[in-house]
Design a protein around this nucleic acid. Structure first.
Length: 476
DNA sequence: ATGTCC
């Protein structure tokens, strides 16, 4: 990055000073080396978002930020509906409510001894993965509307999971205010056979080993001990979310044009929260959130089926489920006054601090689990939300490693088979239906997740609780 | 991310 674009305010906080059409400053949380590796495009996108109507506070970028459609990935921005604030499909991302769910298994590393290949094969056989993959559930539009209105509780009611699972999902697994009537028939058609599927790209289902504990109190509250076997699922709202994004990008572009909102990039398209298009998107996006929450719930049930076969003594329970592509209505204190805002987090994780009323009782004293997915070859982290994060980036943290290379560049540089072989040599088993996908997702195509997490921790956006390394990765 | 360009 060109250093003239930012002003360093403290070790991990860089300001993009308000200029031109910007209504607020930009704030980038990063270390010296992450800033050095960040594209100038991140600054440009932070600036563009800062110029949108009704933005409040600042336009933020998390340490894993990189270029995205309209808003950068790793972008956080809040808008006030009573001050002309907007909502943007590109500010949520095309994979609505893409997120991470981590499961306890009740097993230790020694319980898998000599059976890693078997578990990999069982999980791969059971988990539909890859572009266009379909699941065992076929839904007519009216049935899909129930999924979109009810989220994970729909899945539990239909036999996919346990009622207690719901307490460990953001918003109890159901985002209120969903309006399935605002989701196009095409979006529903695309989703008809895709419930309970992983998808492709950076999505995965991983068997992980806890290798390090940083915060004993939070780890105890979350139920994390060294050598625990956990399972993490990273996926979202599949074809439905993507189609909702596509549909509303178009209607928002024409709405913005009519409202005279200047759009430096087409994907920055947005609509006032008070407008019909804005309200329709809100109802459709919330349907997409429920779709993703139900999807991860069904995948959890499939994991339970695998463990019924693999190891009957296993107990699959939820640690937590949190999305990192959303726009949520939240109250934040701005200039000492509480305000009702619509917070876009695109590739950023909500990170509530201790005592937040929305937390399950078990976690109330320590704060919200913040699930950070790494790459196939590095590590994932579990962090915990802090009180001070509220005043830094609206209680937000990083969401993963963040790419530092495009998918096409990665496929030119590496061969998927070689990557899988190298990982197998390190005891990490990959199962995939797309070997090209493995090249696209090569660990080397990402920033250093440990560095990203270290910045989040040192800055206080969220604090480190545990480090997990992959043993088995079912790639989308 | 994605029926990887209706």
């Amino acid at each position: 990055m060109d250093r003239k674009l930012v002003k360093q305010k403290s070790e991990y906080r860089w300001i993009v000073e308000r200029a031109g059409a910007m209504k607020v400053d930009g704030v980038i949380f990063a270390s010296e080396s992450l800033i050095a590796g960040m594209d100038n495009k991140v600054v440009e996108q932070v600036r563009n978002v800062a110029a949108l109507p009704g933005i409040v506070g600042a336009s933020y970028a998390m340490p894993d930020a990189h270029w995205g459609y309209g808003f950068c990935i790793g972008g956080v921005a809040a808008f006030d509906p009573d001050a002309g604030g907007i909502i943007s499909a590109g500010g949520v991302g095309f994979d609505i409510a893409c997120g991470v769910r981590t499961l306890h298994t009740g097993l230790k590393l020694r319980d898998l001894e000599g059976r890693h290949e078997l578990l990999a094969d069982l999980l791969f056989r059971k988990t539909p993965a890859g572009v266009g993959s379909t699941g065992r559930i076929k839904l007519r539009p009216a049935q899909l509307d129930e999924v979109l209105a009810n989220g994970a509780p729909w899945a539990v009611e239909h036999g996919y999971g346990l009622p207690d699972d719901l307490r460990f999902i953001e918003s109890g697994g159901r985002m209120p205010g969903a309006n399935p009537a605002k989701v196009s028939d095409l979006a529903k058609q695309r989703q008809a056979e895709e419930m309970g599927t992983l998808g492709s790209g950076n999505h995965y289902l991983e068997v992980q080993q806890v290798v390090e504990i940083y915060d004993a109190e939070a780890a105890a509250a979350f139920g994390i001990e060294p050598d625990d076997i956990k399972i993490s699922i990273h996926c979202g709202s599949r074809g439905l979310g993507h189609q909702v994004g596509t549909d509303y990008l178009k209607s928002m572009a024409s709405c913005a044009r009519q409202m005279g909102i200047e759009l430096p990039e087409r994907e920055l398209a947005c609509a006032p929260l008070s407008s019909d298009v804005g309200q329709s998107y809100l109802g459709a996006m919330r349907s997409g959130i429920n779709c993703a929450l139900a999807n991860r719930q069904i995948l959890t049930h499939l994991v339970r089926e695998v463990f019924d076969e693999f190891q009957r003594s296993a107990a699959i329970r939820l640690l937590f489920d949190v999305s990192h592509n959303t726009c949520q209505e939240e109250t934040h204190t701005i200039d000492k006054k509480p305000r009702r805002l619509f917070v876009h987090r695109k590739g950023a994780t909500r990170a509530w601090g201790p005592g937040h009323p929305g937390l399950p009782a078990e976690y109330a004293r320590v704060g919200q689990p913040v699930l950070i997915g790494g790459t196939m070859g590095t590590a994932s982290y579990i962090l915990v939300g802090t009180a001070e994060s509220e005043h830094m980036g609206l209680s937000s943290s990083c969401h993963g490693a963040g790419r530092n290379m495009s998918r096409t560049a990665a496929t030119k540089q590496w061969n998927g088979k070689d990557i899988a072989r190298q990982l197998a040599g390190r005891g990490i088993l990959i199962r995939t239906r797309s070997i090209r996908g493995v090249a696209e997702e090569a660990p080397q195509a990402y920033k250093d997740v440990s560095e990203v997490v270290e910045v989040s921790h040192n800055q206080g956006l969220a604090r480190k609780v545990a480090k997990l390394v992959p043993l088995i990765c079912i790639k989308g």
